[in-house]
Amino acid sequence: MKPGDRMRLITLLALTMLTAPAQAEFNGEQLYARNCAACHGMDGKGGVGVPLALDDFLASVPDSYLFKTIRNGRPGRVMPAFTNLDDEQIRAIVGHIRSWGPPQPSLSGSPIKGNAGHGKLLFDKHCAACHGANGEGSPGTGVTFSRPRDLPILAPALNNPGFLKAAPDQMIKQTLMNGRKGTPMVSFLEMGLSESDINDIVSYVRSFENENGAATSIQLEAETPVLVYESSYDFATTVENVKKAAIGKNFRIIREQYLDQGMVEPGTENTGQKMVYFCNFQLINEALAIDPRVGLFMPCRVTVVEQDGVIKVMSINPKYLSPLFNNSYLNRACNEMYDIYEAILEEATL
């Protein structure tokens, strides 16, 4: 072996030895980047998800809380359940999140026995304004950037089965005692509540568990992904009918085009498939405030199709798409949109 080669080999060996122990950490970072950063931000500062890189947060939650939150998610509250990751991968992600702040606290596992009745009174007075009358959490997603609203960070749902399963009583207590600096969640010790008051509130929050499936975790059920009506009018008349019906429901027609327009040479489009796009700014605004991803529903659209001499009008079924967002606050909007689509399709074919 030439001296140069030997040198190279030693360097290579040294490099291998250096990188090997760092592997796990690297993994956690990479897994986080792939699975979590889209919502929680590369450095945990928040986005569609709430911030995770907060000293007060990390100082008050055990690793088991992070683990269970990732594994089970929060049904109906945007945070997905990561059933596709194995335990080791989740532990690596937890390790990465830990690198942003203090180590886990040593919390006793014993449940807190407070007066839930008194806790409810305190909850109504001190917590409901942000966390909802029944602990259902505030609407919207994690941190707001472009969407002005009351709370800069969303107040999590406390009645959520995912949260209640992950959070031990002592962690909830710590959170109420210390608050979370940098968020609207303040220390209720500093707000003048006693430790015994706080125990009562914790017991009340724990009692949400008996509700058996909080309203926030309910998903809409759709029988069909598409709404389809048959039209007895000719193609052109049906298109006009759709436009009239949409305008009648307070929408503005923003565009009318063949389905493959833009994909094929102009003039060679399939003229038997036409899309009518329409929108209503107020609806868009309301929906975007609940979830910035709802652009996937937009703009509203009805498609008119001629196939084998039959004219059909079709639309997506918003109730079918709603669960894909895992955001129960969208349910109402989707129910509403479902009714609107049905009405437009029906009117256009009547």
Partner: peptide, 14 residues
């Protein structure tokens, strides 16, 4: 299938 719809059904990147 509704019971399975809880999982992430969205592909997102930052």
């Amino acid at each position: 299938f509704t019971s399975q719809l809880f999982a992430a059904q969205m592909i997102m990147v930052r």
